[in-house]
Design a protein around this nucleic acid. Structure first.
Lengths: 237, 237
DNA sequence: CATAATTTGTTGAACATTCATTCAATATGG
DNA sequence: CCATATTGAATGAATGTTCAACAAATTATG
């Protein structure tokens, strides 16, 4: 049952993206393709463009070309460029949310296990790959100056943060730690985001593997009575 | 001697920027103004624009207007928009570098003190304010897709990271800790960047004060024999 | 069932706008 | 006067949006 979460190869840093899968979806090109499929296809092309060219250089033409469709098509399915970008951001947000919620469910009842699963989820390949990280960063760069993006651009929302706080509080009770749960949760989630940031920027010394090591190191020093988790390898399952 | 570093008011989250000081510099407007002064003036206006409008919406006209000068002026002092942006990034990079190096010097010989000073430096008002953080984020968002930015856009470079690793190694020797210095240094610096990120994005629960608390909490759990530092308050000096 | 009518999806050229860049004219300071 | 700095209008390229024409799918009709 742990496949989706623990399936992390120690191999290389960040895979370049599941290019193949996306090509597969787009194969239904010819004429038909339900409205939803076509919209998804355009959203994927938008993520591609954001990742490859950055926010400022992402154009409607590039998105259309990337999807193998004509110029005017984007304005037909999404009303404007802005709405396309919002839809793309929403898509990524939903995917991220669903992913960590699933991970949390799979962890069972043990809080230490839940926290470990959340950390693992953050570095899962399906979420944490060059393409999507680059797209996230592109949005983050514009979020402060665009009110419309702000709510969605955190990916980790208030509820997510609250889960971390609750877990820190519970562990504190069970391990008689001294920290303030809210403060510790902030440190922890900030570190996770910071590791993402390094992966996004392609910092040399940071790979998905070393990032996960660092995160686990944090868990070990913050909650020494609970980590390393029994029967859980650091990098691979 | 600690003024620059420890001068942090507990008061409010992030000040909106030292707007006044910059206005003062720009006062030498009329006609004259040495080449360097004018370039600095334009760079500051660029930071303003990046912070207010984001990278994608920053235009030459906006920069010129912000500096109170005419349209063509930027192409005279900097050859192109791209070169203006690179100069701006370089300026911010140099400022950040100089700042943490100074902090390190002021800390003296004790490694625990040095690390604490580096952390404090990161949240010093002169470096860590809304305006500059927003500008950093704007650059980060474009860095991956622009080779020219990559070297400068980290702000925290390889050398900075090495300092962290060395400090972690030294503290390990003196405190008989169990961690791997490289991994711990990554966790620590990632958390600092992650806290910056939260400040940049304006996440509600994160202020410069709570960020500093979280960072200090990290130091305490990672190096329990060294922190909290004797005689150093968490938030204010 | 075949064919017409209609709705829906798609195209690509035309249009309008924004913006970086250029440059001739002008002002300034030495 | 000369070198340098500054202006602001003109230019041209890039790009988001619109839309009339076209094609495919769906529905209506005999």
């Amino acid at each position: 049952m742990l496949e989706t979460i623990t399936r992390m190869k120690t191999a290389d840093a960040l895979d370049n993206a599941p290019e193949t899968t996306r090509k597969g979806d787009a194969e239904k090109r010819g004429r038909k393709a339900s409205k939803e499929v076509r919209q998804l296809q355009l959203i994927e092309a938008t993520i591609d463009s954001l990742a490859k060219r950055g926010y400022a250089e992402t154009t409607m033409a590039d998105v259309a070309d990337g999807a193998g469709l004509s110029r005017g098509i984007v304005n037909f399915h999404f009303e404007s460029k802005e709405k396309l970008l919002i839809a793309t951001l929403q898509h990524m947000y939903d995917e991220y949310s669903a992913h960590w919620r699933t991970a949390l469910q799979k962890a069972g009842d043990d809080p230490a296990r839940q926290l470990q699963y959340l950390v693992w989820a953050d570095f899962d390949r399906s979420i944490c790959n060059k393409r999507k990280l680059a797209a996230w960063l592109a949005f983050w760069g514009e979020a402060k100056s665009r009110p419309t993006y702000q709510a969605l651009s955190s990916s980790r929302d208030n509820y997510y943060q609250q889960v971390f706080i609750d877990l820190c509080a519970t562990l504190k009770g069970r391990g008689s730690y001294a920290y303030d749960p809210q403060v510790m949760a902030l440190a922890l989630s900030a570190m996770l985001e910071g590791l993402w940031l390094r992966l996004m920027m392609g910092t040399e010394d940071t790979t998905r593997e070393t990032a996960l090591q660092a995160a686990n190191e944090f868990l070990s020093v913050a909650f020494p009575k609970h980590y390393p988790l029994k029967g859980a390898a650091t990098t691979k399952s």
